[in-house]
Simulated assay, not measured.
Amino acid sequence: MVKSLVDSPELSPKTSRKLWMAAIKLPMYSVAIVPIATGTAIAYRDTGAINWSIFLTFLVSAILILVWENLCNDVFDAETGIDVNKAHSVVNLTGKKNVIFAIANICLLAGISGVLAISWLQQDLFVVSAIAICCFLGYIYQGPPFRLGYQGLGEILCFFAFGPLGVSAAYYSQAKSWSVGSLAAAIIVGIITSLILFCSHFNQVADDLAAGKKSPVVRLGTKRSAQLLPWLCGVIYAITIAAIICNFFPIWTAIVLVSLPIAWNLCTFIGENHDQADLLLNCRFIAVALHFVVGSGLSISLIF
């Protein structure tokens, strides 16, 4: 039985609001928006048209599916005890694990229904099949009996779900075809999304170790993980520049380079404080900012 923090007499209304905002993770929903926007933008560059009803349906569906994944992760983490010190877990805040799990599954059904509607309209099963695989990857990340995130495979699953599968599904929903440009964009989106998950491990190494979770940061150590960050960021910009040179992206995609100060801030902040868990609680939101700016720059440049 999970104890609720909502009715705790020691929890002030102001603190409660802050915990709920942290639990809802509104900025994190750019993770659902960017793959759909990017795939659609590339399709517009290739076809000169956007089906807005399909785009909006896909966007809402993606957000609902991400709500499912986030809520389920809180439920599954509550079962293993890894979130025992995580006050902003939705399960810890409410103490109602079964209710949260039910809400999560309602969101999943609603999200999948939207994707099914797109496939039905197009009389093509690719989009719903790709998103079904994304959901499967999302489940085996934390869900029993797999819990592959505990083996350090979360970033790989995240890369494929939000990158090659997510972006390609959005592109196909508009163009009903493939392109090298969409693959290049998918790799970029996959890396910047996985980067958020990677950065989220730095402040919870102790809890991960206690629960037996072998995240990449646990496996590599905080110092080597921090040293890896600049290389991961560098790959994002290298692929972008290469795609521009090869004319897969327009020259305007160089606007992505405005995110360099954010990448620098992320790498230096974690590099200097890699072993200071209390200072790194919000470093994932620097990664979210990087994700949003790179994804927005990519999408806007492809459209305009």
Rank of each mutant, 00 (worst) to 15 (best):
L109F: 08
A49W: 12
C233L: 03
V90I: 14
I303M: 12
F76D: 00
L59M: 11
V115D: 00
D275E: 02
I192A: 05
Q123N: 13
L137R: 01
T15W: 11
I262K: 06
G81M: 00
A210D: 06
K223S: 02
A32G: 07
A170Q: 14
L148G: 06
L125D: 03
L157S: 04
Y44I: 14
T253K: 12
A104R: 01
V128T: 14
A254R: 11
Y150A: 10
R17I: 15
L153K: 13
A22C: 04
D278I: 06
G271K: 03
G111R: 07
V84D: 07
N70V: 00
C134P: 06
E79D: 12
N203E: 13
E10C: 15
E10L: 15
A161C: 11
I300G: 05
C158T: 09
A243R: 04
G234F: 03
S168C: 01
S168M: 03
S129R: 15
G143I: 02
L109R: 00
R147E: 00
C246F: 07
H201D: 15
T94G: 10
L290M: 07
Y171S: 11
A37W: 12
K3M: 14
H291Q: 10
F162G: 00
G114E: 04
I244R: 11
G114T: 03
G297A: 08
G297K: 00
S8I: 13
E155I: 00
